[in-house]
C-alpha cells in the first residue's frame, strides 16, 4: 500500500538528511507504529506520503503509484485516498460536530443526501452518536480527536495517517482513541501512526518501525516500544551515537 524505495529527504544541504535512504513497505490493512525521538523523521515520512514534500532522491509509492509522477492537479485525488489525524485535532471552531465531519465531504462535492446518510454512521463508528450538534469547545480532548478521526475517514480512504494523535490526551482517553483506530483498521484501512507513547505501543502489540536520525533502525512485527532484540553492528554504532547525543542534550538541559 505504501512503499519507500531508498528515499532520502534533505531540507538543508548542510545538515544531516531528515530521511536517509529509507526502504520500507507497508501492506494493505496493516497497522504500523512509527516511533522515534522528535526530529527522527517521522513527520517527514508522513509528509512524503501526502506529497506535501518531494523526496530528494528515491521513490515513494502510494497505492501502487509513484507520487513523484502525480501531476499537481491530481494530487487532490491522491489525498482523497488518505485520511490524516493530528495531535492538535484541527477542528473548525465555528462548526458543530456534524458540520466538521460534513465539511470533508462538502469540499469534494458529495451530495447533501449522501452526507446526511454517511456522517451519522461515521460518528457512530467513533463513538460520538448523539453529539452531532455539539460545538468543538463543548467536547473533551478525546471527543475532539474522535471528531477529527471521523472527518479523516468519512470519505473512506484506504490509508489513515495519524501524527501523534494521543499526544494531547491522558492515558485512559488515549486507549479509547486507540480502540477507534483499531476498529477502523479492522474495517480494512491501512493505519500508520507516529507516536511517542510507549504505553500504547506496548499495549497494542502491532508492527513497530523505529526511526533514528532519519534511518530505520528497527522494523518488528508485534513489537514493543523499545527493542526486544539486542542491537548489533551498524545499528549498534548508530544507537550509541544517538544515545550519546541524547545524553549530551539532557546534560545541557540540567
Amino acid at each position: 500500500m505504501i512503499r519507500f524505495e531508498n528515499v532520502t529527504k534533505v531540507y538543508d544541504p548542510n545538515a544531516r538528511p531528515a530521511l536517509d535512504a529509507v526502504n520500507l513497505e507497508i501492506d494493505r490493512g496493516e497497522f504500523t507504529f512509527l516511533v522515534g525521538a522528535s526530529g527522527s523523521g517521522k513527520s517527514t515520512f508522513l509528509r512524503l506520503i501526502l506529497k506535501e514534500d518531494r523526496a530528494t532522491s528515491g521513490s515513494v509509492y502510494v497505492a501502487g503509484q509513484n507520487v513523484a509522477n502525480i501531476s499537481s492537479w491530481r494530487v487532490p485525488k491522491l489525498r482523497r485516498g488518505i485520511g490524516v489525524v493530528f495531535q492538535d485535532f484541527r477542528l473548525l471552531p465555528q462548526k458543530n460536530v456534524f458540520a466538521n465531519v460534513a465539511f470533508a465531504m462538502q469540499v469534494i462535492g458529495k451530495s447533501r443526501s449522501i452526507i446526511r446518510e454517511t456522517v451519522p454512521e461515521v460518528l457512530k463508528t467513533v463513538g460520538l452518536e448523539g453529539k452531532e450538534r455539539r460545538m468543538p469547545h463543548e467536547l473533551s480532548g478525546g471527543e475532539q480527536q474522535r471528531v477529527a478521526i471521523a472527518r479523516a475517514v468519512v470519505n473512506r480512504p484506504g490509508i489513515l495517517l495519524a501524527d501523534e494523535p494521543t499526544g494531547n490526551l491522558d492515558p485512559i482517553t488515549s486507549m479509547g482513541i486507540m480502540g477507534v483506530l483499531d476498529k477502523i483498521n479492522q474495517n480494512g484501512t491501512t493505519v500508520v501512526m507516529a507516536t511517542h507513547d510507549d504505553d500504547i505501543v506496548n499495549e497494542m502489540r502491532k508492527r513497530v518501525v523505529e526511526l533514528r536520525n532519519g534511518v530505520v533502525v528497527r522494523d518488528e512485527a508485534r513489537a514493543l516500544y523499545t527493542s526486544m532484540i539486542p542491537v548489533v553492528g551498524e545499528s549498534r554504532r548508530m544507537k550509541d551515537a544517538s544515545d550519546a547525543e541524547i545524553d549530551r542534550a539532557q546534560g545541557v538541559q540540567q
Binding site: P76, R79, V107, I108
Partner: peptide, 8 residues
C-alpha cells in the same frame, strides 16, 4: 483541511 481531504 480542504487540502488534506483532497478538495480540488
Amino acid at each position: 483541511i480542504m487540502r488534506l481531504v483532497g478538495a480540488s
